[in-house]
Amino acid sequence: MTSKSEQSGGGLGRLVILVGAGWIVALAVIFLYAPTERVEGDIQRMMYLHVPAAFTMYIGYGLVFFASLMYLLRREARWDELATAAAEIGTVFATIMITTGPLWAKPVWGTYWTWDARLTSAFVLWLIYIGYLMLRAYGGHGEQVARYCAVLSIIGFADIPIIHYSVRWWRTMHPDAKIMTEGSPGQGLAPEMLLTFGVAFAATLALFTVLLSLRLRLERTERRIDAAHARRQQDLDLILESNG
């Protein structure tokens, strides 16, 4: 008889394989099907990684905000587990965004980095969640750090639009968004490119989901082990007390 956790582990295992296969297809579409951009050349294929990573980052950080709010309202550990996992995986995608960006920019703009509006606000956002992960790591015991992180993520999320506008007024080289243009979405791109983008975006979202589930499972296991350790310590203390 298999336990429940083993069963879900098996399901997750199949999901990991599925996402891996999906990524092989996505990479084939990106490199073989998508047309080469006329001006920028092959480097433009970076878009299929860079832009979905940026969208996924927002999904991750949105989840952190939602879970933090729920945690402060309900005080249920599962919301804090979700916030922990989403913050880490969101930051993985933020880091992909912030490293693929300069690699794409160097051949196209002639520079790895420029303090333009989008770059600056993405950088600041990344730093906020690096701070969040540091607070997670050094914030103290479980319930306390959960409250601190929830407060930080709520204040941080409220700051995102303010950062966005302040930095935009301050200066604005990053091309305007090509995918979600006002009016008709995706009009800035060739249809083949849009299709490739869709595949890459789906693969990135699937990767996010699988990483988030794995991280969530890890977090729960860690907390179970910590709780078991604490119980064992209590039992030992009781035995020592009754013997002594």
């Binding site: 600041v124 730093l127 906020i128 690096i130 701070g131 540091m134 607070l135 050094y138 914030g139 103290g140 306390q144 601190y148 407060v151 930080l152 204040i155 941080g156 700051d159 303010i162 950062i163 506008y165 302040s166 930095v167 301050w170």
Partner: peptide, 26 residues
């Protein structure tokens, strides 16, 4: 929050400065 963490005073600038960016620019 910072003075209640293990890293104490090191934590404050890490949390505060990125969030205070709009204020500083203005």
């Amino acid at each position: 929050i910072a003075v209640r963490t293990r890293t104490r005073e090191v934590m404050l600038p890490l949390l505060l400065i990125p969030l205070a960016v709009p204020l500083l620019i203005a």
